[in-house]
Design a protein around this nucleic acid. Structure first.
Lengths: 199, 199, 199, 199
DNA sequence: TCATAAGCGAGACGGTACGTCCTGTCTTAAT
DNA sequence: ATTAAGACAGGACGTACCGTCTCGCTTATGA
């Protein structure tokens, strides 16, 4: 764990961006969100916990939303990457399970929910979030689904984007309302909406 | 409509709750949210626009969330009431269309999105919102769906609550991400998930 | 002494200006200036020490200069009021001695020096200081001197305003440069510049 | 004059102190003080305008006060040097006129006023200013005055230092309060305080 | 001649204060 | 009892400077 304590004064790197400060900010933001909730996630609190000056945060991130985005992009790639290499129907199913587990069991899932929330409150956030997170992921999800349709493994009644909304929507909705997401639900959604070739 | 302007000093009602003040607050909150977004929705701004003292707001509402809830409950009942009287399959379908239209076309739809968002940021809000809005509506939605299943008109692969999540989820997800919701999408979801008896 | 401690939360006066807060601010500013110098005299430090919110300071004073002015006006009137009632030559002489003593021995003298200094750095301060302090005092000093000239007790070579500058200037200059001001110096200035009728 | 513009990147002298940078700093400080006042005289602003790195300033001057002192020493010597070569009474009188003119008409006079001001706010500045400016000049002024007394041209009622305070004080006081200084005032002070042998 | 040592522009860093805004509590005077 | 008004303590906002630091470069010097 990257120590962000303040007694051992970090020595920084002069003219160049200080990687230790960058990480300290990301971790502080993440920790604060999980431990104390979005209300406690102020720039001042992040700076305080990271042992960093406010100006250092403002220098590199326009707002706390972008900090969260940075952590989310990293965490999402780590915890539920979109299967990209000749994905099969089972890869798609597995991806949906991973997504559900990320939202309900992973502390980082809270970041995704918080960003969706913040996007409702702020049009700028909505745009940034769409551009830097939802859009790129959707592109890869669409490619995944399209491939599995192309092989004949899946044959949904909806076009790929609508099908993805129909799959992701319910999972996310249950997460947003604090409900559990059983693997059965995911499986039934998958079977009903994507109509997989019987095995 | 009760004027909420400040030049014509409203005369208030002595020792009874002032209904004009109550309405002025609800309208001010609604208007501010729609016109200037959630960021501008502060107690001070509501009080200012409503021509009401802050204390009057704090006396009757624990937080701005409850103000929004009050407006949302009223507006939802008006714009897309849950069909309750022997609802048919077509009533269910119509309800989903009304819900989608509320979210995308009605200014009051923004209130629902804002409350879902705020619920992510604040556990207290989540609970209140669930208890006073989502829960009661879901009860009536479940009754509606159960009735239509009981008559044999609908036969979903999922249990009623899961089916409702599967229908509401995608619609809400598209609204949350700012996407349009075509009637076709709603129809296809309805047909795929609820498997209606062919007419 | 008005307690400015923070544990015993002051109860304030609601709708009206809180006199206790006003005094706490004035005393905190005074104390900080004397104890830690002008550099430590920040709005934040005053607020901290007075146990007062910053906003309360900004509500009533445009800047810390006006806080100092308020204390200076009060203190000057108390410590070296301008003799006003048929002042004699000896009253004038005594006034000069009081002025010298105020500058060198009284902690409040530091406030006067600080304001003269600040006036050099800030045109707005210069104007306010002139209008609210120097001007009014000079009017009364001129009246005092004019009266003593009118009785024939004093007959300076300079017009009253120039004479006052010639008397005040050296005293203030020595104070500004941290030099002591002996009563002899004041007496000699008085005798040389005002040419008093021999007794 | 060495251009302090930033587009034409100055080539510096490698191993040795860069004289161009030194001058650029002095001029930038001077200009900023005159054009925008003491409030705008920050190290960052000086560095910006001089096209110099902050570190270069901190390397050679402990604080902005010393920068001003450097310019003041140079300018004072140029604009109103203390007559040193067998000064007559008229030299003394002329010196006082020069001093008054420097304070009121010369942009560099603002530097002297600013340093007197800053000395009130900061004991370190007071000491440096006394040691490097006021002290040395006073030594030469005392020598000048003593010489003119020695020749019998002048016979003040006060000892030389007190006489100098009595002359300089009023002039400076009027400058500090933004008042004009007429030659008549200077002449009368001179005549009254120094009691010159009639010509 | 070529390493080395200092000065330089640049700019990131941890801090502190700025002046503004909003929070939720309180008191007053009027209804 | 309820209201409009608004003062209050508190605390976050985003900005500007502070004084320190490290970087990569340039130049003069002496081994």
């Amino acid at each position: 764990m990257p120590a962000a304590n303040s007694q051992a004064r970090r020595t920084h790197s002069g003219n160049r961006r200080d990687e230790a400060a960058r990480l300290a900010v990301l971790h502080a933001a993440d920790d604060l969100l999980v431990e104390q909730g979005f209300g406690a996630l102020t720039i001042e609190a992040i700076a305080r916990r990271a042992g960093v000056a406010k100006q250092t945060i403002y220098r590199w991130w326009p707002s706390k939303v972008e900090i969260l985005l940075d952590t989310l992009v990293e965490d999402s790639e780590k915890r539920f990457p979109v299967p990209a290499d000749e994905p099969t129907a089972e890869d798609v199913r597995g991806y949906l399970h991973d997504f559900a587990r990320f939202l309900t069991d992973d502390p980082a899932g809270a970041v995704l929910l918080a960003l969706i929330a913040e996007a409702q409150h702020n049009p700028g956030t909505a745009e940034t979030f769409q551009r830097d997170y939802l859009g790129p992921r959707r592109d890869r999800e669409r490619a995944m689904l399209t491939h599995a349709i192309g092989t004949g493994e899946l044959s949904p009644a909806l076009d790929p984007d609508a099908a993805l909304d129909a799959l992701v929507g319910p999972i996310l909705y249950r997460a947003l309302t604090g409900a559990a997401i059983s693997p059965d639900l995911v499986n039934t959604l998958f079977d009903t909406l994507l109509n997989p070739r019987p095995t």
